[in-house]
């Protein structure tokens, strides 16, 4: 069975949630949600997850129209309670911001122009300031390029990161916990000196140089930088069950295969 790039990224996303313990795992968007779902069905059944509306479920809910699938509720998770989880720190969220900088700061608010008259207004900072200062976060990027991984700071720091100048005396940085970035080219983490971003694994057929060119700031190579593993047949079967309408096919442009065919 041949895997698509989106499926490889779903597996990479699921790895972000390995050995997290009992935390509320929130995958926002198709690939992150499928990643959390796959993690819960395979290596990390202890994860708490929701039906993406209001209820905790004991098994992941498939994406899109569910036919005769009946969700198995095990609890309740209104937005009010999500906030309680955020502030208590027992949560790991994976989201896709519009911009990311070398300090792990993220932006979901405005891009370009000035703050008062931005070129592009997006959503707003949403819960990013609170999420990023309270619990573990991983990031998802379907289009790895210098417009996402910007050279300087992101245009409106929504999610906080590791930039020392941003942290004034007395502010508690201890709970900032940026884990991994899964992109369409590679998997990265913040394991370099002073939390510098480094490449953990390259997707099949992708060179480090290509990733470096597509990134607006210098990148490190992790010791033992490897190739991102292809999904196993078992993982592909579970993904197919979790995403029966193949919504994952829309997440990466042209839905390419995981193994890039040589030109």
């Amino acid at each position: 069975m041949s895997a698509t790039l989106a499926e490889l990224m779903i597996v990479a996303a699921s790895e972000c949630f390995r050995d997290n313990g009992e935390v509320l795992a929130s995958g926002i968007g198709i690939v992150p949600r499928l990643g959390v779902s796959l993690a819960k069905l395979t290596h990390s059944p202890e994860l708490l997850m929701t039906d993406s509306e209001t209820y905790l479920v004991s098994e992941p809910v498939p994406l899109g129209p569910r036919g005769d699938f009946v969700p198995k509720y095990e609890g309740y998770m209104s937005f009010d309670r999500v906030f309680e989880c955020v502030w208590g720190g027992r949560r790991h969220a994976m989201i896709g911001p519009t911009q990311i900088d070398r300090w792990g700061q993220t932006n979901l608010s405005v891009v370009g122009g000035t703050y008062d008259k931005p070129k592009t207004a997006i959503l707003g900072v949403r819960g990013l300031p609170g999420n990023s200062i309270n619990h573990a976060n991983s990031l998802f990027v379907p289009n790895h390029g210098p417009r996402v991984f910007v050279a300087g700071e992101v245009d409106m720091v929504s999610g906080v990161g590791y930039k020392p100048e941003r942290w004034l005396p007395g502010m508690k940085q201890d709970y900032v916990d940026l884990r991994r970035i899964v992109t369409d080219l590679c998997v990265m983490d913040f394991g370099g000196a002073d939390h510098a971003i480094r490449v953990l694994s390259l997707h099949p057929g992708v060179s480090f140089e290509r990733v470096a060119e597509a990134t607006g700031f210098p990148l490190l190579q992790a010791l033992g930088m490897a190739e991102t593993p292809l999904p196993t047949a078992e993982q592909l079967a579970l993904i197919a069950k979790l995403d029966p309408h193949r919504l994952r096919a829309s997440t990466i442009k042209n839905d390419p295969p995981a193994l890039k065919v040589a030109a």
């Binding site: 502030w87 300031p129 609170g130 200062i133 409106m156 720091v157 906080v160 941003r166 502010m171 940085q173």
Partner: peptide, 11 residues
């Protein structure tokens, strides 16, 4: 609250 510290929300 801690929410907002170190972000541009305060700036």
């Amino acid at each position: 609250t801690r929410c907002g510290l170190a972000s541009d929300v305060l700036r």
